[in-house]
Amino acid sequence: MEKKIRVLIAKPGLDGHDRGAKVIARALRDAGMEVIYTGLRRTPEQIVTAAIQEDVDAVGLSCLSGAHNHLFPRVVELLRERQADDIVVIGGGVIPDADIPGLKEAGVKEIFTPGTSTEDVVAFLKTHVGR
């Protein structure tokens, strides 16, 4: 059977708003992917455990609280510690342009800001994951 792209969508941090994450989840589903949605307020540890257990190809993190500079790199670091750094990490939410280079340097593959269309996210995943 054809291998489907599996993506974990998670919201680390304390903000209680997940409309954006749900929009992305639906777009990925409509593009034929399997999306595991884990909901609000997950710790980086929980996200990484879930990503490994679910054998996903990518993790999409959404953060509106401003804590992305801490939380996103933490997820990348934990994945590396657990020898799972082949899992692609992407981020989205309210992220100032000035923070993007630092996040990418820390290992986040791409950052999607609120202006991005969902098709861009789909296209990015289709080109950057797949075994």
Partner: peptide, 15 residues
């Protein structure tokens, strides 16, 4: 159950 048309799915039970 997966979405029958695109073959994609949102798996939300873990939530």
């Amino acid at each position: 159950p997966s979405s029958p048309f695109t073959g994609g799915a949102i798996l939300g039970d873990r939530l």
